[in-house]
Design a binder for these strands. Sequence first.
DNA 1: CTGTTAGCGCCTTCAT
DNA 2: ATGAAGGCGCTAACAG
Lengths: 335, 335
Amino acid sequence: MATIRDVADRAGVAPMTVSRVLNNPDSVSPKTRARVESVIAELKYVPNMIGQTLRTNRTMVIALVVAEISNPFAIQQIRSVGDAARRGGYTVLFAHTEASEENELTQLRALVQRRVDGIVLAPVTNRPDSVDFVQGQGLPISVIGYPMPENDVDVVRCDTGTASRDLTDYLLGLGHERLAMLSGPRDIVTARERTDGFVAALAGAGISAVAMHNAPFTVDGGYQTALSVLNARIRPTALVTANNFIAIGAAKAARELGMRVPEDVSIVTFDNARSDSVLDPFFTGIIQPVAEMAELATEMLLDRLAGDYDGPGREIVLPTRFEVHDSTAPPREMS
Amino acid sequence: MATIRDVADRAGVAPMTVSRVLNNPDSVSPKTRARVESVIAELKYVPNMIGQTLRTNRTMVIALVVAEISNPFAIQQIRSVGDAARRGGYTVLFAHTEASEENELTQLRALVQRRVDGIVLAPVTNRPDSVDFVQGQGLPISVIGYPMPENDVDVVRCDTGTASRDLTDYLLGLGHERLAMLSGPRDIVTARERTDGFVAALAGAGISAVAMHNAPFTVDGGYQTALSVLNARIRPTALVTANNFIAIGAAKAARELGMRVPEDVSIVTFDNARSDSVLDPFFTGIIQPVAEMAELATEMLLDRLAGDYDGPGREIVLPTRFEVHDSTAPPREMS
DNA sequence: CTGTTAGCGCCTTCAT
DNA sequence: ATGAAGGCGCTAACAG
């Protein structure tokens, strides 16, 4: 593989001249430039960024670290961060942590070893360690999706607690009185937020929940939990699920029990996938502006990298969207 | 950010000793090692792989280049390649090309600049340019998904042409006589393969197709095409779609026209997504072992990187799986 | 407009 | 068991 020296020798110039042809062509005479360029083509020379990096101390790479790649969010995040990064001249190194905090730190360490210039993190939890580690290395970082109360860091997120309350209020408005919550793991902040919103809405209406469960954020988790909830003595007429996987599992369970959605049971959810991937039912629920969140987080990072900002952590809270689709209806038997 | 020299100075040793502590701890006396290690912790020193790379000429990074990240395949590929790479001590740099050949070459160039050690490519088409470029740089490469007749390269793929024939035969066996093909873009090999298999099956039965169309591999493409096909004078009783997006679009179109799947029209497909993301109908169709393909492709690459193999390109053709689900039934009116 | 010198962080080699 | 010298590919800074 040809180096800058090979090109220089063959073109009869100094390596520096080749470097100039590559990075600042106007500073080289057209004649020399032409000769160098033809040698570059001839030798199929591709500049080695490793050398540049060592010299300039900038890799022009930012990393995107995502908890769970199966989440439909992840794809939009990869796309958005990639686009925003490219606009700033950066490449994105993608890493996923399989929703393990230990893994998250391992990955971050590997990224620091590779001297990425900055990190966009969609974290597993909102414990402060990961951000602390990255910032301790002097690297800028943006966080997507969680409040990070213990860190001084740039964050873009939504208030899904309030959204959960609104969502539950909508069901109450339809006349539902027996509601169950199928939330996510207790140690995930957003799961707690959503549970809290649900509870607050019920409290506001003077009702208590028929059931409240914590399932993993998976189709099977939702399925199992929904099976038991829908088989209980007091059947709920509406389910609030904390994410789309749980909702899909719940819909499967309902169908298997011979219940129709929404006639027999209404289901609402968060993080609804695009209509592309779920055909029926298309869930009523809360939509987060995932792409915009990822884009803003990346732009905040690029700001810091460009030296345009170096103040304290900023927090952007974006509004969610509430969409009514096919999975909700008034309860059958109004009490 | 601390360097090896900072650590060395503070520990009162030579940089070389620090290097040994990191890479070959046993060659350092326990006392020195302990001191160096405590300084490493104190200074939060993280080795700079850029330096290592420049010296050793190995980045320990392989790149995964995927045409379209929205394809459910992509996620499995990212996961499989990542796992296989990790087992070999490599990190994966992920790039997507948005199904543009020009983009593909640009991305590959950027990856060569970063001196990745090798590339796993799920290409846009099977033209030889991309592979030629990479191999011309002396980098090993594996290809997933396409036959590459013009390249001497490692390939893992499935024979979806034969699979398409089998799939069509299944519909014929159910008694269908009016079949339509909704295939993908004509310039994509796999789309052509699938069309050919469809045609061969019909020819074998002495039937000709009611309609054959080329739509983009998207939900909307499938939707639009299916609308016109299902509205035609001669309605097909079964649709063979060339991928899952087209199938979902077709199912939407059918539903909108008041037709039930499979009672009024059967739909079969390729590249079926996991049952997680499509609830109803769960399509009858051909499943490719995507994860296994990606894993094998990565292992072939690692073989070459390890110097365990350096012969001519190998081709592995894996069998597909045929799964019958809810989207197929005999036609209503047997002729 | 072009070349020279030096050094980014690390590790291979050879010496001690 | 430890250290010193040198160089991987590139470019900033300073000649000329």
